[in-house]
Nucleic acid binder design. Sequence first.
DNA 1: AGGCCTAGGTAACAGCGTGTAACAGAACAC
DNA 2: GTGTTCTGTTACACGCTGTTACCTAGGCCT
Lengths: 247, 247
Amino acid sequence: MTIPRLLVVDDDAETRGMLTQFLRQNGFIALPCDSESTIRDQLDSGRVDLILLDVMLGDEYGVDICKRLRSEQDVPVILVSALSADHHRMAGYEVGADDYIAKPFNPNLLLARVKAVLHRAKRSSSLTYRRSISTFRFGGWCYDAKRDEVTSPQGYQVSLSRKETALLKVFLGNPHIPLTREEINTALDVTGDGQDAGSGNPGRAIDVLVGRLRGKVEADPKIPELLRTQRGVGYVFAVDVAVEDDQ
Amino acid sequence: MTIPRLLVVDDDAETRGMLTQFLRQNGFIALPCDSESTIRDQLDSGRVDLILLDVMLGDEYGVDICKRLRSEQDVPVILVSALSADHHRMAGYEVGADDYIAKPFNPNLLLARVKAVLHRAKRSSSLTYRRSISTFRFGGWCYDAKRDEVTSPQGYQVSLSRKETALLKVFLGNPHIPLTREEINTALDVTGDGQDAGSGNPGRAIDVLVGRLRGKVEADPKIPELLRTQRGVGYVFAVDVAVEDDQ
DNA sequence: AGGCCTAGGTAACAGCGTGTAACAGAACAC
DNA sequence: GTGTTCTGTTACACGCTGTTACCTAGGCCT
């Protein structure tokens, strides 16, 4: 295996520099980034094994970036944050981060976590890393993340709304795992501080949204095979998801 | 391919027993443990696919045990806890647990999470697990656990509700053994701490449930041949059960 | 035998969770 | 502006589940 390549994403130059240097001293290839666009540049231009992502990035929430990245790519992400309040952590995990470290952190702890996550990633991915995911296949259906299009088993094109797409992605990222309405809501709603999500949804928006997605992505919406209800719990995506990446 | 082997670690005998029984009824091999040393015995003596670990184990924290185990072995761990506060959850994840379930939990949720973790583990490891029990045959009837469908001796399809299905599974797992209403209730209601189950059911829910199941899974509900009443005791499943698993 | 007493069967009802049609406001295109 | 699309809310329907009440069956007594 080659030397792991890490992205260090932080808008504070000093922190970024220290982290980068520290990681390099410890045998990693560290690539500094300061914005989402520079992250994407790096992802497009070569293999990336792990992203160290600061939670506060200008006005942007790292959590949001993490969410977007995870919906497209399979690169492990460790969130780094000055905010150690529990709800921030929860938001991080629910959004698909592999780990979460609060500042100030022990450098050796960081190193250990980085190694642990890389180790896990190595185990769970039989393929080599890098690659941007472009196509999901599930039960005859096909979702093209690049074009945001869904194709039915019969080859019909279905167009999804923004929320429907987001919901489908949540399920595609968590096949066979029952998700509560609250978890789904958080995943769709992450605002970084979770304020809105917390106050939100006394209503049944998720139910309706699931119903609408069923109408588009089920052979027979009356007998759901993909988006199964778990009474008293929530919903599960009940089929395997195959992920293909483009070149 | 073999049936997944799970360790159920809890120092409370009742919880341990309920969990073990419940998992066995659902096609797993469940091995009860009550301490770290018994865990190690099991790990040394054979393959273990997943550990269900109670967070409070005497004075010991399951989290600590989890940490030690993860530092040596690669066995997936699900932490089970009465403590649902976020920081406990975080501690669980940080220590390397694959999932975290708070008591009281929905049995089906537990089952689904167990399957999800095994599913993940299967993909990432060279071992091949899994081979869940899929078909039960009893007195001309047939229950397909995969599809949750019952077929009558005449070939008619019968659909069961969630609770009816759960009850049938309890009987299928304990043929010829008289079960008291309390035992049945416990088996259906696994809440982890049994709090709810204990306080619960002053009523006759089980009687009614058995009646409803008889209505669907008896040639003549008036003269039960499968679900026999034992006056003053409870109910028995009075025929042999043949188990087939898929390939 | 008849008279009780108790356990169990079951119809009827109520509460709850979920599916969904209809509606209303927001966002956006033209 | 008008019209369209998206999204959350509401209201109603329906199925599932536990409770209750009433009835029958079985067991035990005198």
